[in-house]
Each structure stands twice: as C-alpha cells, then as structure tokens.
Design a protein around this nucleic acid. Structure first.
Ligand SMILES: [Mg+2]
Length: 226
DNA sequence: GCGACAG
DNA sequence: ATCTTGTCGC
C-alpha cells in the first residue's frame, strides 16, 4: 500500500529543495523495462480555481495498447506553482490515484520532466523513486537544458544537456509539430525513454497513455446537454 | 540585477 | 494549469 497520509507535502520551498537533492540520489538510470506488460499515462488537472488537484492514471496493456484500467485521485493543493517544484503540487493526488489501482503499472509515462530538472528530480523521477517503478518524463516544453536544432520530421531527436550533463532528449513525435522533452525518471536510460515515447505515440503529439490521462484529468463535470 | 521558468 | 469557438496552416 502506498503511504500518502504520513508525509508532509505542504512544506516550504526551502525544505522541498532539500528533499529533491536527497531523493535525486536514489534515481537509477538503468533500463529495466524489458518485460513490461502494462504502460500508464499520468497527468493532473485542477478544479475549484486551482484549489483541488485531480490526477488520473490511465493503464494500458502492452503491446496491445488497449486500455486496462483508470483511476482518479483528488486532493487539495498545498503548494504553489513554482517552476522546479511541480511534483509537490501534483504528487498527493497522483499517489491517491495509484492507491486505487488494482495493480501498479510496470512503466509510468508522466506529463512533465524526469531528470531534465535543475536538481535532476522532475515529477517523473520523484514519482518513479517514490513508487520504485520505471518512469519516464514527457514534457511539452523545456524546463532547463540546451540542445541543437531538431529536424522537422517525425522521429527526429536531439540530445538535451545541462552543461556537460546529458539530461534528456528533444523528440519530434509528429512532423512539423513542436517536439517533446523526454527524460528518464527512474529505472530507464535515455535510449529506452525515447523508444517508449515513440512506440506509444499514435496519431497525435503526445503518447496515447498520457493523452488518455490528460483527458480524464481535465474532464470538467457537466450536466447532459439537452 | 536580469532573464528563464515543467504544469 | 485555466478561462473558451472559430479559424488558419500543414
Ligand atoms: Mg499536466
């Protein structure tokens, strides 16, 4: 069972930074996704003018890529949005959703960065270490790092660096469409991270598992129309 | 001090 | 992230 109640997520930025530096030491960049049977997408939406975080985890069978299960977690937001500290806002709701799953997925594709983070602990790395599950960060934009130009064809890649550190890969998942920022979160390497993203992309820019999670997480509550 | 800055 | 319908370009 995942422990969410016995932890203070409502810490100040100072403490959060210390926690990130400590947990970053537990990240393992070795590919352990050779026998994956289930791949999940993770994303969070907000309700009540940002007071409530609504996270969704959409689990898919692999390699069928057929939806297996979905879980949603809703928790009050206890941390402001500050670039570099996103996980402290979304983690409580995400962990609640994880507890509701019948089984934890073999691989987590998260909306956000993995180690492509100032202290190498983006939300995918934080979640991966916390659950000790393979995880990959899929950002729609850049948090940090530099890279050369990415060819405009689908499948084109360019390494992302922070100084001399390789922190991720910029990946074009659709021709002539803005690329994604892919980075390992935990128990995967750069190559595997990119392969998983390209393998789970369908007709759209984002991997199908993340699209499904995003859809369910931001789906507003409304009455039937008619 | 100034600019950058996941969702 | 969120407020929101149609419109433009590949
Ligand atoms: Mg998101």
């Amino acid at each position: 069972m995942v422990d969410t109640t016995c932890h203070a997520w409502s810490v100040d930025i100072r403490s959060a930074r210390t926690i990130q530096v400590q947990l970053a030491k537990r990240v393992r960049l070795v590919d352990e996704t050779r026998n994956v049977t289930t791949v999940a997408g993770v994303d969070t939406g907000f309700e009540g003018e940002g007071a409530i975080a609504r996270a969704c985890i959409a689990v898919f069978h692999w390699p069928d890529l057929v939806l297996a299960e979905t879980a949603i977690g809703r928790q009050p937001v206890t941390f402001p949005y500050v670039p570099g500290y996103l996980s402290f806002r979304e983690m409580p709701a995400i962990l609640e959703a994880a507890e509701k799953l019948s089984t934890l997925p073999d691989l987590l594709l998260c909306d956000g960065q993995g180690i492509a983070h100032p202290r190498r602990l983006g939300i995918a790395a934080h979640l991966g270490v916390w659950l000790d599950r393979p995880a990959i960060g899929v950002g729609k934009s850049r948090l940090c790092g530099t890279h050369g130009p990415v060819a405009e064809e689908k499948g084109a890649t360019r390494a992302l660096y922070d100084g001399d550190d390789r922190i991720g890969t910029v990946v074009r998942t659709r021709t002539k469409v803005r690329p994604l920022f892919v980075s390992p979160g935990h128990r995967v390497d750069h190559g595997a991270a990119v392969r998983w993203v390209l393998a789970t992309v369908g007709r759209y820019r984002l991997p199908e598992p993340i699209r499904a999670a995003d859809h369910a997480a931001s789906r507003r509550i409304r009455t039937s129309s008619h």
